[in-house]
Design a binder for these strands. Structure first.
Length: 895
DNA sequence: CAGTGAGCGAGCTTCCGCTTGACTT
């Protein structure tokens, strides 16, 4: 008989197994094992008829939750039940936070153990910590569990009562929730500011001066009055903000001033040196890791987490979902020894640095994210490569930097005077780089990154008379507030305490999937739907989309956990009764007119935008007629101005613009804007010609700058360039779904495609140039085996003599034989691989590949609801055969 | 690929937080 220990994750199970006695069996629950039913198919038959069944919470009977085991957890639960049979003690070792406590409680409910049960908690995985934790076990904290359950129920009530309202009033398939709706609202508010933004412009002077060295200075004051710069403008008017005592220079004034100052003597009137110090940023949490990785490595939150998970599973870093900046003693010691070895004692912070968490509602069940172990491997020592290397490198540097000395800098500010004009020059000297040697935190605003650059001024003193080498007038324009990026959205949500480390990445996924935002070169741009939904929620449920809603809820949950508040009255007040959500939603349902809710009004547009079942469209009055026109699919409110609206409508009222007459066919060519953007069409659509020739406008060509020549060219694609001198195969140029390309027809060898560079023009590209492009090796993902050499060649496959090699792909290391690829098992080192081991892996894959073809057909998606761009959730039942065999193999090998 | 903006009506969509596993090279 033995003790069964249950933790959340298999990786945690593997590590703590080493610190427990031999007769302890450690299993993983894989997160939560029970939950409210997610969709109608999960609702058990016996409650399906009930009014509250769709909610999964019996709101008529003290909010009793209906718990089910989600499909993908059924197997785990049976396995855990089985494991418990041979145990004479059960130890629940899930995380010591609200969710972790709840998992333990659900396990108890499900497993109904007849043997003694203990609740064990630890914050560090070391021999000592685990042994101590095992001695100090407690029971499950029912109040903490209640707090979790309250959170769960509240989120369900919000989400599952507001979403149906949106289906009725705006469009089907939409969603609302405590977290996502606030996130969407942040995006919408920022976009509203951008639309309201009025650009202001101002001029100033820049001087290049010389005094024992060159330096630059900027005009700051004129006759004792400050010269206006960007911060003096009111973003809503584009004018100088009220109450500012500044002089605003326009171009003429700036040039006149330049004339007047030219040739006049300059004097240094003041010189100030200000020493400053900077401290290193705290170690990574999930949120800060995602932010930095997005800024520095350009990884999405999701990719960051995927790579971090790999690093964690291979034992390179500590747990990647955390809100704590706490470092264990051993981590601090390891970081300090790294600093000493790599940078020397001078660079060590005099005292070990420990950080404390500031963000709201942090639960701190884990350590900060840092290199694993009691001594850190340097990035080079790890043998990692690609994204894994980059991310580890980032984590290593940030962690090591926390134990480094402050950086000491001197800010130098020089005031200069010429006639009545005051100039300023600022420099920065890094006296001692300290932690900057290892790590500089990134910025969302690339301008701000300059802050850390050293700007050396020549040694100047008061009374110096520098020569003016050059003086120029420079015009500036104020910029609208920047859109949110993934990084800045996560940062904002975290600082408001909204969302959890495990969900930051999926929040962004949700709002993109629901069609609330599009990612355009790293920026999150809200859609028309986002505007409509946000307006409805703000107007009718202002409390729920207020960022402070979550922090108030958290406060109550904390009180429930400590016993100072009771859960039932809280939920009752929130949902039932006169002021409750249920009543409110019902009342609003009859008040809100769908036609109004579907409409987005913009101050600067006369036409209205409506959300239709096929996407957003414009509606305007033309005399007594109502005209509607679709807005192209990837357009957002950011793209829509009065001019474009006009264009879209004109196409409907007066027919499309004619570009000209086709010189050969004599038919007219039209430029139209369709659901996929602007395109040209040859002739009209008629009964006997239902499909006139059409072609999309490529990037850079707009309806405005489109010439007849270009239009004719586009309509004549694909264009034959000639034949290949070596093969005699045809070479053509055209535009495909991925943009302009050239293709070489190699007969039975297939076609060789290459994308054109942005500097090439499909309509004019020559045969010579095409041959040049075709001669370049193919880029892109399919050819990594050609561009990247094998990490190791293991030899020929006995079956067919084809080589068996190890490669590295974006998903880690894998063995390749012909077209078969198999990932290496966890922890398998490249050096230890043999041909035999590789053949074993390939064999297991090749045999299971045959079976797997029969399973696929069951997954046909029932997603026929038109445009809602949801990515179908992939939840196929796992084909256990291959996985379990390889898993058990690697287990026996490692033990 | 280049429209539509309304209907017979069944059954369904949807939340937040814990986890990993399927694919792919």
């Amino acid at each position: 008989m033995s003790t069964l220990v249950i933790v959340e994750s298999p990786t945690k199970a593997r590590t703590i197994r080493n610190y427990l006695p031999r007769d302890f069996r450690v299993e993983a629950s894989m997160g939560h094992v029970r939950d409210l039913p997610q969709s109608a198919t999960d609702i058990p038959a016996n409650v399906k008829g009930e009014k509250w069944a769709q909610l999964g919470v019996n709101v008529e009977s003290d909010f009793e939750p209906l718990y089910v085991i989600p499909k993908d957890k059924k197997k785990i639960v049976t396995q855990l039940k089985e494991a418990l049979k041979s145990a004479d003690e059960l130890v629940l070792a899930t995380d010591e936070d609200r969710e972790g406590e709840s998992i333990s409680w659900h396990l108890l409910q499900l497993l109904q153990p007849k043997v003694p049960v203990k609740r064990m908690v630890f914050h560090e995985i070391t021999q000592d910590a685990i042994r101590k934790a095992l001695k100090d076990c407690r029971t499950v904290d029912e109040q903490l569990v209640r707090a979790q359950e309250t959170r769960r129920i509240l989120d369900r009530l919000v989400g599952y009562t507001l979403s149906p309202l949106l289906w009725k009033k705006i469009a089907k398939g939409l969603s609302a929730g405590r977290v996502q709706s606030v996130a969407v609202r942040l995006l919408v508010n920022r976009e509203r500011q951008r639309r309201a933004f009025r650009q202001g412009s101002y001029w100033d002077l820049k001087a290049t001066l010389e005094a024992k060295g060159e330096f630059e200075a900027k005009l700051t004051a004129l006759a004792g009055t400050k010269v206006a710069n960007g911060s003096d403008f009111d973003p809503d008017t584009g004018q100088i903000a009220a109450g500012r005592n500044v002089v605003l220079l326009n171009e003429t004034q700036a040039r006149e001033l330049l004339e007047r100052l030219t040739g006049k003597p300059w004097t240094v009137t003041d010189l100030e040196e200000r020493p400053t110090t900077r401290k290193p940023a705290p170690p990574f949490t999930t949120s800060t890791l995602q932010q930095e990785s997005n800024r520095k490595l350009r990884l999405s939150a999701r990719d960051t987490m995927r790579v971090a998970q790999n690093l964690y599973e291979q034992g390179y870093i500590t747990y990647m979902r955390t809100d704590s900046v706490h470092l264990s003693e051993q981590a601090i010691a390891a970081a300090r020894s790294c600093v000493e070895q790599m940078y020397g004692k001078n660079y060590l912070s005099p005292q070990p640095r420990q950080y404390s968490t500031k963000s709201k509602g942090a639960q701190e069940a884990h350590e900060a994210i840092r290199p694993a172990g009691s001594s850190f491997r340097t990035p080079k020592e790890t043998g990692l490569s690609g994204r894994e290397f980059d991310l580890y490198d980032l984590i290593w540097k940030r962690t090591v930097a926390t134990q480094m000395a402050d950086s000491r800098q001197t800010q130098v500010i020089v005031q200069l005077q010429v006639e009545d004009a005051g100039f300023r020059s600022s420099g920065k000297r890094i006296d001692f780089p300290g932690f900057l040697r290892a790590y500089v935190e990134g910025y969302d605003d690339p301008e701000a990154a300059l802050e850390d650059r050293e700007v050396i001024l020549p040694p100047l003193k008061k009374g110096d008379r520098p020569d003016c080498k050059n003086l120029e007038a420079i015009g500036h324009e104020t910029q609208p507030p920047a859109r949110y990026t993934e990084a800045s959205l996560v940062k904002t949500l975290e600082s408001e305490g909204i969302g959890r480390p495990s969900t930051y990445a999926s929040i962004i996924g949700t709002i993109v999937d629901r069609g609330y935002a599009q990612i355009v070169s790293n920026a999150l741009v809200p859609t028309f739907t986002a505007f409509a939904v946000t307006a409805l929620l703000e107007q009718h449920f202002p409390d729920l989309v207020d960022p402070s809603f979550t922090s108030k809820m958290e406060q109550t949950l904390d009180d429930i956990a400590t016993g100072e508040a009771a859960w039932l009255p809280y939920l009752r007040k929130f949902y039932s009764g006169d002021a409750g959500l249920e009543t409110l939603v019902k009342a609003r349902e009859s008040q809100i007119e769908a036609n109004v809710a579907r409409t987005v009004a913009f101050d600067d547009l006369e036409a209205k935008v409506r959300i239709g079942s096929y996407g957003p469209y414009i509606e305007a009055q033309n005399g007594s007629d109502t005209v509607t026109a679709s807005i192209p699919k990837d357009w957002t409110p950011a793209d829509l101005d009065a001019e474009l609206v006009e264009k879209l409508l004109k196409q409907k009222t007066e027919g499309p613009d004619k570009v000209g007459i086709h010189p050969e066919t004599g038919e007219p060519i039209y430029v139209k804007i369709g659901p996929h953007g602007p395109y040209v069409q040859l002739g009209e659509k008629t009964e006997d010609k239902p499909k006139p020739k059409q072609a999309s406008l490529p990037k850079g060509v707009t309806p405005d700058n489109l010439t007849l020549e270009t239009a004719v060219g586009l309509l004549s694609l694909p264009r034959l360039l000639g034949t290949h001198p070596a093969t005699g195969g045809k070479i053509q140029a055209s535009i495909g779904p991925y943009g302009p390309y050239v293709v070489h027809d190699q007969g039975k060898e297939g076609k060789d495609y290459r994308s054109l560079k942005s500097t090439d023009n499909v309509l004019t590209v020559t045969l010579e140039r095409a041959l040049e492009i075709l001669a370049e090796p193919k880029k892109g993902r399919r050819t990594s085996s050609k561009s990247k050499p094998a990490l190791r060649e293991l030899g020929a496959h006995p079956g067919d003599g084809e080589p068996v090699n190890i490669f590295e792909g974006p998903y880690g290391l894998y063995v390749k034989h012909g077209k078969t690829n198999v990932g290496l098992p966890e922890g398998q080192k490249v050096e230890d691989m043999t041909l035999d081991k590789a053949l074993e892996l390939l064999a297991s894959k090749e045999s299971s590949a045959k079976k797997s073809t029969t399973r696929k057909s069951t997954k046909a998606s029932a997603n026929g609801n038109g445009k809602a761009a949801t990515t179908a959730k992939k939840k196929t039942a796992s084909s256990s055969t291959r996985k379990t065999t390889t898993a058990s193999k690697s287990k026996t090998k490692s033990s």
